[in-house]
Structure formats: C-alpha cells, structure tokens
C-alpha cells in the first residue's frame, strides 16, 4: 500500500488517515502538509526529520539565527524530546494552530511556550526575560524602567493570587480578558493548505467526503 511504502522509505512517517482522525485536518490536508514537511526536513539534512537549523532556516531564511521563541516552539513541537521534529509531531503540533482547533488547546500551548523553565508557572523573571528578548530582536529602545513597569503591570493583572507567578488557572482568566494575546496561535494558512501545497492532486485517490 502507498502509506506502508512511504512508512518504510521515510522513518517518522505516519498514516495520514490516523493523523486526520486526531486533528482538524482532512486526509488531503495531511497529505499537503507532508509536502511542506518534506521541503522543510530536506533543506539541510535530507533524513526525514526537521532539525533545529532547518526550522530556523524556514522561519528566518537563516539557519543560525538564534531566537528564544523559535527555540521554545521547536522544543514544544519535538514531543518525544529527541532533538528533531517528526512528521506526526509536525502535524499534531500544527493542528493546534488550525482556525478550528479548540481555544483550550491554544491556551495550553501558549502557556507552555511562556513557561520557559517548565515549572508549571509563568514567573515574573520569565516574563521580563521574554520582553527583553523581543526588545533585543527589534529596533525598539525602551528603558529598563519602562520594561519593568510593563512587566509589573501585567503581573499585577494576571497574578490574581498575588504569589508572584501565573498559574494555569490565572492564565485562562487572563486570556479570557485579553483574547488578542492568542493571535499567534491561529494560522489562517492551515485552512487553505491544499492550495499552497497541492500534493493531494498526485497522491490521494481518496476523497475526504468518503472517509
């Protein structure tokens, strides 16, 4: 079968039907994502996995650009924590960014992303570190005092229990009051993926309506 053949040839490849059943994607869309995955995973080392340098190259057109948030996203996509992103991990992680994915999943992903040291909390120092990282990558010049006041003000708004850190419950309430902070968690491209990466035209003999 077509899928078994691919699985043999490409380590980490997973059956699109399985991936479609676990995500908001159709089988055709998973096939199209495989086209994108192939491009990304062969840009430096053609081994069927996305390495961090390949991820950086895809995001920034620069394989050695260091970026705190790209690192965090890569680490969260790398569900098995083996240093590379496999096809199944790529599809499952991207599915959270689908316009139809549950908001709960988007909130959870963003929380993990901002919980830099994976303590289960977003701490004052972590928030400060992230704001500083953004300032370093932009041309904005904001004084330390202003940075501190933005961070203090945000912590005061989000940290309802007043213990100096934001837990998941507080995060949910904060996001509910400020929904725009999840804007990066939705990728409109994922609704038209088969147009951008039309592998289904060649590969899929199955109509999504038949599944």
């Amino acid at each position: 079968c077509f899928c078994l053949k691919k699985a043999k040839q490409h380590p980490g490849y997973e059956d699109p039907t399985t991936l479609a059943s676990e995500t908001p994607f159709t089988v055709n869309e998973v096939e199209a994502l495989y086209d994108l995955f192939k491009k990304l995973s062969s840009s430096i080392i053609d081994d069927g996995f996305i390495h961090k340098e390949e991820f950086q190259l895809a995001l920034f057109r620069n394989r050695s650009k260091q970026n705190l948030f790209a690192d965090r996203v890569f680490d969260l996509f790398d569900i098995k924590r083996n240093g590379v992103i496999e096809f199944g991990e790529f599809v499952r992680s991207l599915s959270i960014f689908h316009p139809n994915a549950p908001n709960e999943d988007k909130m959870e992903f963003a929380f993990k992303l901002y919980d830099l040291r994976q303590t289960g909390y977003i701490e004052h120092e972590e928030l400060r570190e992230m704001v500083s990282a953004i300032l370093n990558e932009s041309d904005l010049e904001i004084s330390e005092d202003v940075v501190e006041s933005i961070v203090d003000k945000t912590m005061a708004e989000a940290d309802l229990k007043g213990d100096g850190k934001i837990d998941k419950e507080e995060w949910k309430e904060f996001v509910a009051r400020n929904p725009s902070i999840l804007r990066n968690m939705t990728l409109p491209y994922l609704k038209q993926i088969t147009l951008a990466f039309p592998s289904f035209v060649l590969n899929s003999e199955v109509q999504d309506s038949d599944i």
Binding site: L36, K39, L40, A58, L59, F60, R61, N67, L68, F69, A70, D71, R72, V73, L94, F97, L113, Y114, L127, M130, V131, I134, E137, S138, L140, I150, V151, K153, T154, E157, A158, F174, N178, S180, I181, L182, R183, N184, L187, Y189, A196
Partner: peptide, 25 residues
C-alpha cells in the same frame, strides 16, 4: 504603548509567528 507584556510579545515575536513557515517556502 503596549497594554500588557503578552500582547507585546505576541505582536512582536518573529520566532512565534509560524506564518513564515508557509510564506518562506
């Protein structure tokens, strides 16, 4: 001025803007 630090991060972060994965290919 930015309303809160998370708003600032999500608006400004290039590393957390995955649309580039599609646009740059």
């Amino acid at each position: 001025a930015f309303f809160n630090a998370f708003e600032f991060i999500s608006s400004m972060s290039s590393g957390f803007d995955l649309s580039s994965l599609f646009e740059n290919q």
